[in-house]
Amino acid sequence: MNKQLKRTVLEQANVWIESNQKVVLARVIHTWGSSPCPTGSSMIINEKGEFFGSVSGGCVESNVIAECLELIKNNNLFKQIKFNVSDENAWDVGLACGGEIKIFIEQINS
């Protein structure tokens, strides 16, 4: 069903790649405590900073997007990022729900 109506994160990544854009995939690989998105949740970011999907229900997305753009800029392939309550950045961007998450970001490449 819904094929035309609902495009998944990976399908959207493919659309961006086919229009020659650089794409970074971000996936939640580990969570502790009460984090809003379960392990395996994913988001993609293109070189223009457009994003699709979610890794935290809004709490740390802006930081993840910045990290992904940095990855493209420095032409790095992958990186692990951790957000937790005691992390000042996480407080800034609002991971106030008492959880911790680890996110793996990686460029989609040929």
């Binding site: 094929k3 998944t8 990976l10 399908e11 990544a13 493919n14 790649i17 995939l25 990686e106 460029q107 989609i108 490449n109 040929s110």
Partner: peptide, 15 residues
């Protein structure tokens, strides 16, 4: 992640 893996995931998911 390689593009070909991404395409394979999409294909396997749809089947």
């Amino acid at each position: 992640m390689k593009i070909q893996i991404l395409k394979e995931i999409i294909q396997k998911k749809s089947s």
